[in-house]
Every structure is written in structure tokens, then in C-alpha cells.
Write a protein that binds this DNA or RNA. Structure first.
Lengths: 339, 339
DNA sequence: TTGTAGGCGTTATCAG
DNA sequence: CTGATAACGCCTACAA
């Protein structure tokens, strides 16, 4: 933990000016002799360049922030897993923010861009409020939003297509002969909550199934809350034969509660989750789940941000990642073996 | 994305000196009138203080790095989940590094402390090599290691007690009447690999069970590798009746392979994992697992680092977190219902 | 090719 | 109480 050497220290040691040291360190044309002396001094002193000073001068931090709603949700992790290598390869560090989907915290993160400790931000908000849009419009660094923002918002935008995703799931359940399909959703004031709720109604109608509002239960995007919501739903509609869950955590809660209630999955009640997280493959029974392409969305977001960082101003872009239904035992009863 | 205002901008606008602006912004005693003018100007301009310049001056970045081996392993996530709020509450941001347990990458991270972009580091290396120790001895910022380092290494150290943990598991299996207990371990040149391998032998002897090296199979700490290792082990020792797996991912791989091989869990083969991750509770059958206190270790690490950052030099500390056996269906056959 | 000097935005010292 | 002014460590004209 010794005092770190600076270019001044090196300059003294090598008997040259700090300008020469800087030049050598940055590979600018310099006399061989000088290069040798500087390198030798730097080596002996164990010099490492100071990133902070460099940032102040260059106005670039080589850091990018990623703001996730919930560190406990594997869907965000899947994004992070893809974001990480893309940014790292381009020489960026990742600063992690966990907002717990609290709007004030998200606004804080947006506001803190003004502190200029990062060159850009990838954010995945659950709600997009007026304040969000206002902050986004005046953000002091490029932002990529994973989730949907209104047209005209001056940020790059990576979207999932949960509408089609829900339709894939409902069609699948319908094809399996299910007719009383319940929906366990997260808060309707969240972007995914609203989209998935609307998509459910739409998909039912497309199948020719009647929409019964008793079949819809609002909870939250966590396992315990999901379980509670399912319990309430079962209570009200004992004869339902399938559950569309707005994410995998809710679906796990559903499995908990159904098991406790003695309902067999999928014989009595088929269950579908969303996000196709690692948990879906590990659960019992394994969970049919709609992949919304978390990994792909993370990768796309990182690439959009990099492009923006490297090429500066341009029109905002929108990338939409298509969903995919991953069928497992919770709807078909067939556990896959092997790896 | 307008040019950001600086204290100079504010000073001009308010008609005072930059020194006064700085004072007001830092809450130092100032005349009311001046305060008012400065605040008004700052408000109008949407001023946000520049973190980089502030860091250069104060030699504090208010950032802490967390270097995890594997973003895909929920055990590290559990740590992160605890580290995050502790550091955030103290005003620190988290910079995330994923090293994939590659020694060179970990050394890089240690080396990069010299760049002074963080005030400290929490690292959880799988291996601790000579180079690690060498870098730790000369690290340019406080480091907390999650994992075991030799006595005398000048860093704070949070340890799991996998020796006791393995013993808990073996005792449990022995008490259930299992006598041919296999071990699926990660690489023996890793700290946990070595510790758990030795603990297995020790625990067997403590139970009065003979040690048979055929019962030990080396793989790696991932699901697919774990599965392959189990397959090899089953091939060689068809009559084993229990598996001690060195982490939960390996155990999941074991479940995959056992299912494919038509062995019932736990009737034919009981399975125990380690780390007690979310996956253990979600898997089928749910997984008995030894909790090594990932969450507690993360919390302890964050607190040690904070203490060090706030109080400066002091003797290195060692915190050891006790293990806990979490019994589930993969050894007893009884699925818990409910949440 | 090399050195001197100014500035990136803040904080802090020291006279007024 | 306030205003110059000097750092913090680095980069980069500009001049020698």
C-alpha cells in the first residue's frame, strides 16, 4: 500500500521531463534512449497509470453502468452475463446498480449520470414514469433501455415481445386441451405487467376462449407473492386447469402452492412461466417457460451502447428480440432426462 | 446531453468566486445571501458535481470492486446480494469483475488496483497461487479475500468452513444408512476443491467408513462437468448409494445423470450439494445442501472492507462463517410443501 | 526530439 | 466571510 508513483516520480528517476514520460507511456515517437530510461524507471517503481486523472483529462471513464431491478432475479443475471464480456472486450468496466424497481432509485441513477463517473448506462426499469422520460430526455450520457419506452424517447431501446410470448404460451395450453387458463400477473403499472396482462386477453380471444376476469390475479414478480396470488386464485376458481405466470419466480411460487394443495402438475393444472431462467430447468417439475431472450437482449443492449459510445450522435435505435416457447414437464408431463 | 455546468459556470452566473461555490456546495459556513445566489444558479443550471474531479482531488473514488469467479454461479450472486446494500449504504458504488476463475484475470484485477479507480476490492478466487500472494502483499488498495489465504497474508479474509460442512453432510448420509458414499469434486488445485476433498476423507473415517479412492471423481464446478463426472463414477462403482457433491451445480448435473440412468433419488442414490443456492430449493427433487453461508460471507466481507476503508491500517482479520446442513428431498425423499 | 506550461473540475489553504 | 491560487495526475499544444 505504498504511495503510488506518478509520472513525476518517473521523470525524476529517469532524468527527463514529465512530457517525455507521458509520450513514452502512450507510445508517441520518442528517442530510443529516452524510451529505455523511462521504461526502466517505470518498471522499477511499479508504475501504473492513474485512471482517475486520465479520466478527468480525457472526459472518458471507460466505465458503463448497468442498473437492474432485482439482483435476485436470474433474468437480469442472464443479461449481465452477456453484457459483461461485450463491454469488457471493448475496455469498459461495469458499475452495478440494484434499484429494487424503486422509481426513486432509478431516477437517482439517471441523475447521477451527471456526476460523469460512467460513459453510459444500460437500464432495465420495471415502470417507465413521466419522471423517467423527463430524465431520459436530458440524460448527461448515452442510455440504453431494456424494456419499452415511447416512440421519440431519445434513447436506444431493446424490447422483448411479451405479447407474442404470451400468445405462444396460451396457444400451447389451448392445443393441450386446457380451457380454464388462469393468469398470475405482476403489478399492472409495470411495463411487463401491463403488456402481459393485455396479451393474455388478446391471446385468449384469438383462441376463441372467453375472457373471465376472475381468472386473473395480480401479485408481484417474486416467488412468495406469486404463491400467495395463486392461492387466492385457486380459492376463487377451483376448476382452473392451467396457469400462465408472468415470470418464472411466480411460476415457482405456483408450483409450491399447487403441490401443497394436492394438485398435480400438469395433470390437474398445467403451469407456464416466463423468462426461461435457470430455475425453470432446475425446478420440479421442470417448467415450461417463454424465453423472452434475456441473454440476447443483454447482448444487444451492450452492442447498442458501444456503438453509441464509439460513433456518437445518431438516431435512437429500437431492437426487438423475438420470444421462444421452451416446453418442459409442467405442461406435458414429460421430464427430459440427461443434460 | 448538453455540456455539463461546472463550479466555474455557477460562479460566473452567481457573481461569486469558485471558492465560494465550493463552500456552499459542501455546506461550509457562508453568508446567507451567497448561499442563496449559488444555490439558485446551481438549480437553474442543473449542476451535478463531477465525481472524477472530486476523486482526483480527494483520492477517494467511492467505488469498490467485487471480483467473482463465475457470474453463472448463484453462490456468488448470494454474496453480491449482501455486499451491494452494505456498500451502497456507505456511499460506495460497485464495480463488477468476472474472472471465470482464470488466474491471469484475477492477477489483472489485483494489478489494476494501481489505477486507483476503486478504493478497495472484494475478491473470491478459486485458486490462490504464489502470484496471488505476491500481488496481495503489494496491493495498492485494501483487499478482502473470500476464501482461505495463508496466515500472514496482509488482507482481511472471510472463510467458509467446508471441512465441517462436508462432515455435516457425511454424518447425515451415514445416519441415513448410506455406506458407499461417492464424492464428486472440483479441481483439487482449487482452494475449495482441496478442502472438500480432504474433508471427505476425514469425515468418512470419523464415521468409521473405509476410504476408497474409486469413490472419488474429479470434475469441475459446473453442471455439465458434474454430470459427466457422475456418469464416470457410476460406471466404475455401480453400487454406490450416495453422492457428496462439491457444489450445487455439480449436484444438479448428478440429478440429470441419475435420472437418465434410471436411478431413483434418494431411494437408490442420495445426493447432497453444497452452497445451498436458490437452485437447490427449486430442483427436482429438491436438493439437500450444505450452506456455507454465501450471504453471510458476502456481508462480512463488505463490512470488513468498509471498516478498513474507514479506519485505515490495522491488523488483518479473519472471519469464519459456520456451515449449516439444509435437509431436503434428495436425501430424505420428503418434499416440503408450501413456500 | 524534448521541455515548459496550461487546463480538466474540485477541494483546500491563505491572505484579504 | 470571501477570493485568489495551488495542488490532485495526466495529456498536449506550443516553443525551444
Amino acid at each position: 500500500m505504498a504511495e503510488g508513483p506518478t509520472i513525476t516520480t518517473i521523470a525524476e528517476r529517469a532524468g527527463v521531463s514529465i512530457a517525455s514520460v507521458s509520450r513514452v507511456l502512450n507510445g508517441l515517437p520518442t528517442r530510443q534512449e529516452t524510451v529505455r530510461k523511462v521504461m526502466a524507471a517505470a518498471e522499477e517503481l511499479g508504475y501504473v497509470r492513474n485512471a482517475v486523472a486520465r479520466s478527468l483529462k480525457s472526459r472518458r471513464t471507460h466505465q458503463v453502468a448497468f442498473a437492474m431491478a432485482d439482483v435476485g432475479n436470474p433474468a437480469y443475471l442472464a443479461m449481465l452475463r452477456q453484457i459483461q464480456p461485450v463491454l469488457k472486450a471493448a475496455g469498459y468496466r461495469i458499475v452495478l446498480h440494484s434499484t429494487d424497481a424503486v422509481v426513486a432509485d432509478e431516477i437517482d441513477v439517471l441523475h447521477s449520470l451527471g456526476e460523469r463517473y460512467v460513459d453510459g448506462l444500460i437500464m432495465s426499469p420495471l415502470r417507465v414514469t413521466g419522471r423517467h422520460l423527463q430524465m431520459l430526455a436530458t440524460a448527461r450520457a448515452p442510455v440504453v433501455i431494456i424494456g419499452s419506452v415511447p416512440e421519440g424517447t431519445p434513447v436506444d431501446n431493446v424490447r422483448a415481445d411479451s405479447r407474442t410470448g404470451v400468445k405462444l404460451a396460451i396457444d400451447h395450453l389451448h392445443a393441450l386441451g386446457r380451457r380454464r387458463i388462469g393468469m398470475v400477473n405482476g403489478p399492472p403499472d409495470t411495463v411487463p405487467g401491463a403488456a402481459r396482462g393485455a396479451a393474455y386477453i388478446e391471446a385468449l380471444e384469438a383462441c376463441g376462449l372467453p375472457y373471465d376476469e376472475n381468472l386473473v390475479q395480480i401479485g408481484d414478480f417474486y416467488r412468495a407473492e406469486g404463491g400467495r396470488a395463486v392461492a387466492a386464485l385457486l380459492d376463487r376458481v377451483p376448476d382452473l386447469d392451467a396457469l400462465m405466470c408472468a415470470n418464472d419466480l411466480i411460476a415457482l411460487g405456483a408450483l409450491d402452492v399447487l403441490r401443497a394443495a394436492g394438485r398435480r402438475v400438469p395433470q390437474d393444472v398445467a403451469v407456464v412461466g416466463m423468462d426461461d431462467t435457470d430455475l425453470a430447468a432446475a425446478s420440479w417439475p421442470s417448467l415450461t417457460s417463454v424465453s423472452l431472450g434475456s441473454a440476447e437482449r443483454g447482448k444487444a443492449a451492450a452492442e447498442l451502447l458501444l456503438d453509441r459510445l464509439q460513433h456518437g450522435e445518431r438516431e435512437p435505435r429500437v431492437v426487438t428480440v423475438p420470444p421462444r416457447l421452451v416446453v418442459r414437464a409442467s405442461t406435458t408431463g414429460e421430464e427430459e432426462g440427461g443434460t
